[in-house]
Structures are given as C-alpha cells and as structure tokens.
Simulated assay, not measured.
Amino acid sequence: MSNTFSQHLADEAQTVAMGARLCKYIKDGAVLFLHGDLGAGKTTLSRGIVQGMGHKGKVKSPTYTLVEPYELNEVSIYHFDLYRLGDPEELEYMGIRDYFSPEAICIVEWPEKGRGFIPNPDLNVEMAYDGQHRNITVSATSERGQQIIKQLGQDA
C-alpha cells in the first residue's frame, strides 16, 4: 500500500476541487500540515476542504489571527496559518492544544513554525509550483492518514 498520493492541479478550480475531494475522507477528523511556498495554493486547498464540508461563506487565510474556526453541523474545522508566528510558545497562550481533538479537522499552514507545540499530522500535504500550475503530494504519517490515502487512491 502506498503512503502517498500525487496529482497535477491545472488551476484554482482544480485545487478547490481537490480540497472538496479530500474532505470526504477526513470528515471524522484529521491533522493536515500544508507545506509550500507563498502562493502555492495552501489556502485555496483549505477553502476546498472547508466549503466541501458545508461552509457557505468566505474562507480567508488566518495569517493575522493565527486560527480561523469553522463550527459546522457535523464537524469543527480549525484553519491555522503560522506564517507570522514570532515564537512557537505563543501557541500555548492561545490554548493551541484545545483545538486538536480527535474528531476535529485541523489544517495547519507553515507547521514548522509551531514545532514542539502542535501534534504530529495524519497527513503532510506538499503544494509545489509547476510553471503556472501546481502539483500536490499527500503523504500519510499515521494509520488514519494511511486510510485516507488508500481511499483517495481508490477514488482516482
């Protein structure tokens, strides 16, 4: 069984669609670490996940607030953007551990800035430039993550 899933994303619409596809398999909770350069599509993918779970409003990057919560009927989603985090210890003051319940979906952009204060992910998601397009690689880092990858592969 493969522990990775990769796909070429031609445009923003395909990136959003990939997030909506992914949300089908993380609806029971997961921790996702999103990696990639600025503008690589991390927030766009997050928008697809959040809207795919039923959110009807805008999905913005929580660059200045650090976390944007989405309390939906069947799931709580917490979208973190740690890009501007000065010191990972700041996460303790905001009660970071309270967000990471087993049934919550936690999407973390720039997770390396919170090292030591956030739990290990179920999935590492790498977003990379390919000219004007993007490539996404999703890697499992837990048993839960492996189940998600398996389902993604079967859905391809």
Results as ranks from 00 to 15, higher is better:
Ser2Trp: 10
Ser2Arg: 07
Ser2Gly: 14
Asn3Lys: 06
Asn3Trp: 09
Thr4Val: 13
Gln7Pro: 02
Gln7Glu: 14
His8Arg: 12
Asp11Cys: 05
Glu12Cys: 09
Ala13Gln: 14
Gln14Leu: 02
Gln14Lys: 04
Thr15Phe: 02
Val16Met: 11
Val16Asn: 06
Met18Trp: 08
Ala20Asp: 00
Arg21Tyr: 07
Leu22Lys: 08
Lys24Trp: 04
Lys24Ile: 05
Tyr25Ser: 08
Ile26Leu: 03
Asp28His: 13
Asp28Leu: 13
Gly29Phe: 04
Gly29Trp: 04
Val31Phe: 03
Leu32Tyr: 09
Phe33Lys: 02
Phe33Ser: 05
Leu34Gly: 07
Asp37Ala: 11
Leu38Lys: 01
Leu38Cys: 02
Ala40Lys: 02
Ala40Asp: 05
Gly41Met: 05
Thr43Gly: 05
Thr44Asp: 07
Leu45His: 10
Arg47Trp: 12
Val50Thr: 11
Gly54Thr: 04
His55Leu: 09
Gly57Ser: 11
Lys58Glu: 13
Val59Tyr: 09
Lys60Pro: 08
Pro62His: 03
Thr65Met: 06
Thr65Asn: 06
Thr65Lys: 09
Leu66Val: 00
Val67Ile: 01
Glu68Arg: 00
Pro69Ile: 02
Tyr70Pro: 05
Leu72Gln: 05
Glu74Tyr: 06
Ser76Pro: 00
Ile77Phe: 01
Phe80Gly: 00
Phe80Trp: 11
Phe80Asp: 00
Leu82Asp: 06
Arg84Gly: 09
Leu85Tyr: 05
Asp87Cys: 01
Glu90Gly: 02
Leu91Glu: 13
Glu92Phe: 09
Glu92Gln: 13
Gly95Tyr: 05
Ile96Cys: 07
Arg97Pro: 02
Arg97Gly: 10
Asp98Trp: 03
Asp98Arg: 06
Asp98Tyr: 07
Tyr99Phe: 11
Phe100Lys: 05
Ser101Gln: 13
Glu103His: 12
Cys106Lys: 02
Val108Lys: 03
Glu109Pro: 08
Glu109Phe: 09
Glu109Gln: 10
Trp110Gln: 01
Pro111His: 02
Arg115Phe: 12
Phe117Lys: 07
Phe117Thr: 00
Asn120Ser: 04
Asn120Pro: 04
Val125Arg: 01
Val125Asn: 03
Val125Tyr: 01
Glu126Asp: 12
Ala128Glu: 09
Ala128His: 04
Asp130Thr: 12
Asn135Ala: 10
Asn135Ile: 12
Ile136Gln: 14
Ile136Tyr: 15
Ile136Pro: 15
Val138Thr: 12
Thr141Asn: 08
Thr141Phe: 05
Glu143Asp: 15
Glu143Leu: 15
Gln146Leu: 14
Gln147His: 07
Ile148Cys: 11
Lys150Asp: 15
Lys150Arg: 15
Gln151Pro: 15
Gln151Thr: 15
Leu152Asn: 13
Gln154Leu: 13
Gln154Asp: 10
Asp155Cys: 15
Ala156His: 07
Ala156Asn: 08
Ala156Ile: 12
